[in-house]
Computed example of a mutant assay.
Amino acid sequence: MIDRGTLVLVATPIGNLGDLAPRAIEELARADVVCCEDTRRTGRLLQHAGVRARELCLVNDHTEYGAIPKLLDRLDAGERIAIVTDAGTPGISDPGERLVAAAAAAGHAVLVVPGPSAVIAALVASGLPTARFVFEGFLPRKGVARDQRLLELAREPRTVVCYEAPHRVARTLTDLANAFGSTRRVAITRELTKLHEEVWRGTLADAVQWAANEPRGEIVLVIDGAPAAAPPDEHALLEALCAQLALGATVKDASTEVATRFGVSRRAVYELAHTLPRAPR
């Protein structure tokens, strides 16, 4: 009986070649085939690590879907397949997600050699809250999809992390300032782990000015989450209650509606309703 194959996701450096883990080197040397975005770039990495790969297979955004059937056949034959991207961890805004899903669905083992990740590196260096965050990859480039995503993220209470190309970062920061408010805090990481690594921190308004210098290199944006909404004041609750009562609602129903809308205690709103003159009991 042939053993089931194994798919191994191998994280590779995002800039500093010294970040390639010993276990990553072992898995790349052991694999029957190494899937990669760019055979020349991965070839240089393997040469640096002293690894002579048995075979390189091109798996990028354009070829991943078409390559899956043949790779599954090789896994069925018991082979060990490693997948890397140009930098970082496979499957995070890079090829790998669809192959992992297909391999898992076919019952093959999926292993991970953890390591460099621009998302995590930028987040922990940002100085912004790290306990809860959301990763957005690249924002939609234009149109309704972009506007809708910005509107959604403007209300997101968790820290937001996204990638952006240097030639688009000025426009994106301007759009973020307009959607999130110019005073929202942001950290911009550039060229992480490389010679000219930079972490800039400030407000979105100041970030727009920073981007006017036409920054170069790989960029990750880390934006502070939306602040908690201020609790409604008593005047706003009374106005909403009066509006509901004027429509013929009972005090109980009006209190429930207003409490739900403002996210406050129904009991507190009910008691407030009874302070109104001639409020029905």
Rank of each mutant, 00 (worst) to 15 (best):
A240I: 03
A243S: 12
R267K: 15
A273D: 05
E271F: 03
F262K: 13
A246E: 11
R261I: 04
V269I: 09
S265F: 01
R267G: 04
V264M: 08
R266A: 09
L245G: 02
K252E: 01
Y270V: 07
T260I: 04
F262A: 02
A249D: 12
A240R: 11
R261F: 00
E257Y: 06
G263K: 13
G248F: 04
R266N: 10
E271T: 10
G263I: 08
E257A: 15
L241R: 14
L245E: 03
T256E: 12
D253V: 09
E271L: 11
K252F: 03
E271A: 11
R261S: 02
V264N: 05
G248T: 09
R267V: 04
G248Q: 13
Q244N: 04
R267P: 00
R267H: 14
F262L: 06
A259H: 03
D253M: 13
V269Y: 07
R261L: 08
S265I: 08
S265Q: 06
E257K: 15
T256C: 04
A240D: 01
L272Q: 05
G248Y: 10
A240P: 00
A249F: 14
S255M: 06
V251A: 14
L272T: 04
S265L: 06
V258M: 02
Y270S: 06
A273M: 09
G248D: 10
A249Y: 14
S265M: 08
L241D: 01
A259L: 09
A268G: 10
A259N: 03
V269D: 01
S265W: 01
V264W: 09
A254M: 04
R261H: 04
T250V: 07
L247K: 15
A243C: 05
G263S: 10
C242K: 15
S255F: 03
A273K: 09
A273T: 03
F262S: 05
G263R: 12
L241P: 00
V269F: 04
A259S: 06
A249N: 14
